[in-house]
Every structure is written in structure tokens, then in C-alpha cells.
Design a protein around this nucleic acid. Sequence first.
DNA 1: GGTATATGTGCCTATTATGGTTGCATAAGC
DNA 2: GCTTATGCAACCATAATAGGCACATATACC
Lengths: 145, 145
Amino acid sequence: MNTRLAVATHILTFLQTQAGQPATSELIASSVNTNPSLIRRLLSQLARAGLTVSQMGSGGGALLARPADRITLLDVYNAIDDKGEVFALHDQPNPQCPVGRYVNAVLKARIVEAEKALHDQLAQTSIADMAEDVVEQVRLGARTG
Amino acid sequence: MNTRLAVATHILTFLQTQAGQPATSELIASSVNTNPSLIRRLLSQLARAGLTVSQMGSGGGALLARPADRITLLDVYNAIDDKGEVFALHDQPNPQCPVGRYVNAVLKARIVEAEKALHDQLAQTSIADMAEDVVEQVRLGARTG
DNA sequence: GGTATATGTGCCTATTATGGTTGCATAAGC
DNA sequence: GCTTATGCAACCATAATAGGCACATATACC
């Protein structure tokens, strides 16, 4: 896939570390090291999915819409990815050939299973977990420099 | 992802239904409904991964390199996908920010778990399963027209 | 040996996805 | 009304993907 899941997760994890303080797209962008506009584009997707809320105007910014332990990577994945499909089928197999006629339907069933396994695993991690892991890394990093 | 896994799986399933008869790229292409050249390119990847063998010259073509029940969708996936990664991290988070500094490493660990779940599920299906399912569909389809 | 067949691969093109960027209308606080 | 900040459209550059052509190479068969 692309890096959008990673950036979106970064955003949410960042918001969690802000302890309820609204974060501007510019502030988030400085952590992600990219353009504020790109952050806003992702934030609007996250807001549409109900994961964040944004406040316009001075003193505004983005906040998590609910506790971080109730936002999973699967939620993020679903918010970001339009179709939620890792694999695609090919367009026009030859229906005159038995394999061409049925292989897509057969494969589809297997792919759905595989993607379900992926989703289930993504659902095991919350943004709270992510933030805790980051804090732990900071603690470890502080000792070794 | 792309449709290459689907096409490669189509190719292998097709070969399995050929019962040991070498299939030319042109024959396979007519089933997939695409260009023989594209089929050959995928076949050369599959051959490099040891899943198929190809014979040049008259009467030649492609064959499965081993029994279809010992070729899984994970094998196909690994043969086709260069890096085998569904998700990417973003390039340069800001190391001055704790989140920017560690979020990628933390996320990476979770992503590896999720991809492992995907892989494990893909490994549950063999090309023999695929071919059997197609045959079953043909049988069902024959009744309803 | 010569011909027909078929693979292997490099190169080209069109389309789409992605990431990055700018600009501006809109909303909110002071 | 000024400042801050989002929301969103438009645009560009790059890369991935699918598709296709050409040709060198290898093999079988006569």
C-alpha cells in the first residue's frame, strides 16, 4: 500500500500525546515532516470517519474524537483506505474458459479471508498502545542517548 | 495491491487444469484475456521462484514445477511481490519530536504482525484448492446454465 | 542445416496513484 | 475587523501498473 496509514497513525498518536490540547495541522506537519495541507487532507478523512474532531479558527486544531484505547489501527485503515482492499482482481478473464470464468470468484473468497486476518490483527492495536510504545521507546532512548 | 497476484494465480490454476500438458503463453493469455507478453513476464517471475518451469521451442510452454497442493497463494505472493509489504512507512519523520522519532519503529512492529497474519492465511490455500474450487463451480454452473 | 514455434526480455506508451504544493474561501476567537 | 486555522479545489512531478511491440535466443522437427 502507500504511506497514508503510517501518516494517519502518526497523526493520531501525536494527538494522543498532546493530552487534550488541540494540535494545528502545522504543528502535526512539523512532526511528520511534511506539508500542513497534506495533514489537513488526512485529518478531514479521519474526521469524516469519526476518529477526530477539528476546530476552525484561532486556538483551534484537531483532537481525538474518543479515547485512544477505542481507536484501533483497523479504524484508521478503514478511514484512510477507500475500498479497503489489499488485492485486486483482474478485469476481464475469458468467460469461454472454465478457469477464466470462475477463478476470480474463487480467488475472491480466499482473498476476503486473508484480508480479514489482516484486519483482525490491525484491530488488536489501539492508538493508546501506539502512544504507550512510543513513550516506552523514549524512556529506553533516554538512557543510551 | 495490484492485479498481479490474481493473474499469477490464474496462470497457475490454469496450468493445474492442463493435467501436465505444457501451456503456451498465448493459450494462457486467451484465458486471462490479456497479452502473451504480460503472461510471459509473470511466468518468468514464477519460474525464478521455482513454481513453474518453461520449455522453449516448438511443443514447449509452461508447467507447474511441483504438485499443485504444494504451491500456496503465499508462494505466489512472494514470487510476484518484490518487497512483500502491504504497508509502507513514511520517509522522514522529525527526529526532534518524540513521536516522529519512534512512531515508525513502533508501527513497523505492529504492521509486521498484521502482514504475518495475512501471509499465514494466504498459506492456507493451495493451487490445488483453487483448481478444485473452479471445478466445483463449473459443476454447479452446468446445472443452472 | 533450415524452418517453425515459443520463451525471455528490453523498450515504449497510456493510465492511474501518490505525494507534494499553492491558493483561497470559510469559520472562529479576540 | 484582524488574525488564526481549517476545508477544499486545482495543479504538478514522480512512480507504479497494465498493456503492447520487437527481437534475440532456444528448441523441436523435418
